[in-house]
């Protein structure tokens, strides 16, 4: 049999080196390192300070993006199924408002529910998560069973959830939250929540049936169905989880700000999508990893903190941010094309 000749004609596959395979996040991680180095060099040249060697700045950098990070973990999963979630920013606000309504302290004179003050923190947390879950499930049902395109279904939720959070107190902010509740937003707690959520879903996507089904649906929904996956039920699950995480992010936001406002989480959904896409998640579905999204989130954080550090005008910040997002994805698309042809 011509086994030897075939083996010679097909040399070792690139990317496999012994048992070690190059992590897909490596490229984007190098981009992150590049941005950090650039800030460091510019820092020394322009201001005479180190960018990296400043523990306080590092903490703040990560702290700032933790909320977007929590959302992005959910959004990544939705995008892997080939969908999109535009509602997460608004769900943050809805969940923050509703949770905060049940987190007010008795000392606060203008409590929303005067008879329900000083509740243990678990109550507002449960309510916030539940609100997110409901919003997500609604998205999922519309997408999976009513077959509304995800863009439209979640666009509707984006508008409605924002409306609900305004209607809830007729636009008034909710303040006077209990110390027990605001503790979740204090110190490095948001970062901790972000890391735990990221780890849970990293494991879920890679090592559980839930994860395998999520990728399969995004890669080819018809093949997934023929392979015995209950596609509709699974999609509802994924959107519900994304909503739940947005709800959790709402709780963290309110706790950190020690108040809740209907304008919270404005445009967070776009930062979350950007983070996922920078991290290598394909909008075509079937491709994406939590590790990449975490790096994408950190890149967004480092960018804004680096700009502030280098005293770049806020106007330029947004312009450059947009450019960097598109550049990162362009590089990724280009590399994929090279790999395929």
């Amino acid at each position: 049999m011509g086994k030897d000749t075939t083996a010679a004609a097909i040399p070792e596959y690139r990317g496999s080196f012994g048992g070690w395979r190059k992590p897909q996040e490596l490229n984007i991680f190098l981009v992150l390192v590049g941005i950090v180095l650039l800030c460091e060099v510019c820092g020394w040249l322009l201001i005479g300070q180190s960018f990296v060697w400043n523990p306080q700045r590092l903490t703040i950098t990560i702290l700032q993006v933790s909320v977007v990070g929590i959302i992005a973990i959910g959004v990544t999963q939705v995008i892997i199924t080939g969908g999109i979630d535009l509602s997460s920013g608004s769900v943050v606000a809805a969940s923050a408002m509703m949770a905060a309504g049940f987190a007010q302290s008795a000392e606060w004179s203008k409590a929303l529910y005067p008879s329900l003050t000083d509740l243990p923190a678990i109550v507002p947390i449960a309510i916030g998560v539940l609100i997110g879950l409901l919003a997500g499930m609604t998205n999922g049902v519309f997408v999976a069973y009513a077959r509304i395109p995800p863009f439209i279904a979640t666009l509707g939720m984006m508008v409605s959830a924002r409306g609900i959070s305004k209607w809830y107190t007729k636009g008034q902010p909710i303040s006077g939250l209990t110390d027990q509740f605001t503790a979740i937003g204090s110190a490095a707690w948001p970062v901790f929540v972000f890391i735990v959520v990221a780890m849970i879903f990293h494991v879920a996507l890679r090592y559980t049936r839930y994860g395998k089904y999520t990728y399969a649906i995004g890669a080819n929904v018809q093949a997934a169905r023929v392979s015995g996956i209950d596609v509709e039920r699974h999609l509802v699950k994924v959107y519900a989880i994304a909503g739940m995480l947005a709800g959790l992010a709402g709780i963290v936001t309110a706790a950190r700000a020690q108040t809740a406002q209907s304008g919270m989480g404005y445009m967070y959904e776009l930062d979350a999508i950007a983070a996922a896409v920078i991290g290598g998640t394909s909008l075509a579905g079937g491709v994406g990893r939590i590790g990449g999204t975490v790096i994408g989130v950190v890149i967004l954080g480092v960018m804004s903190s680096g700009f502030t550090f280098l005293r770049v005008d806020a106007y330029y910040q947004e312009i450059v941010k947009g450019l960097i997002i598109v550049t990162a994805v362009t590089i990724d698309v280009y590399r994929n094309r090279q790999k395929r042809s």
């Binding site: 990728y215 890669a219 018809q222 093949a223 997934a224 023929v226 392979s227 015995g228």
Partner: peptide, 20 residues
């Protein structure tokens, strides 16, 4: 159209139905 998950690897393609 209804068979392969083109962007996934051999393992992911092969295992999916058995995971049930």
């Amino acid at each position: 159209q209804s068979g392969c998950f083109l962007v996934l690897d051999v393992l992911e393609n092969m295992q999916i139905a058995a995971l049930q």
